[in-house]
Amino acid sequence: MAIPVNLALGLLFGVGLVVSGMSDPAKVLNFLDLAGTFDPSLAFVMGGAVLVAFVGFRLVLARDTPLRAPRFELPTRRDIDARLIVGPALFGIGWGLGGFCPGPAFTALGLGAPGTLVFVPAMLAGMWSARLLAERKG
């Protein structure tokens, strides 16, 4: 059951991205263009998602264990290090250049726009190099 359940959750997440407009780089770039053709729609995406997650996470975490794993695995770090500034800064620059973050880029993959077909492999290469570099540094 694990594979169909995860497929369904990916579909649900992706449908949310498409319905919200977040899968369209033009809409993301307009959201980020405060001084120009500003489209505030994406604030409503984040508002809706955080609202559901804020309530839902508390309901779920009232349980002792998740359904399919022995325990919840939540990030526990609270320190603010240089990587937490450098990583999001690079991410934000790339987001502002292409209008894609990782989730929307995957929803765009099957639509086959040339820009997407360049972006996704480059994104995976970037992720892979960051992961290998982080694991080497420990």
Partner: peptide, 8 residues
């Protein structure tokens, strides 16, 4: 940038 920055 997006891929590296997100994971970093």
């Amino acid at each position: 940038l997006v891929g590296f920055g997100a994971v970093w």
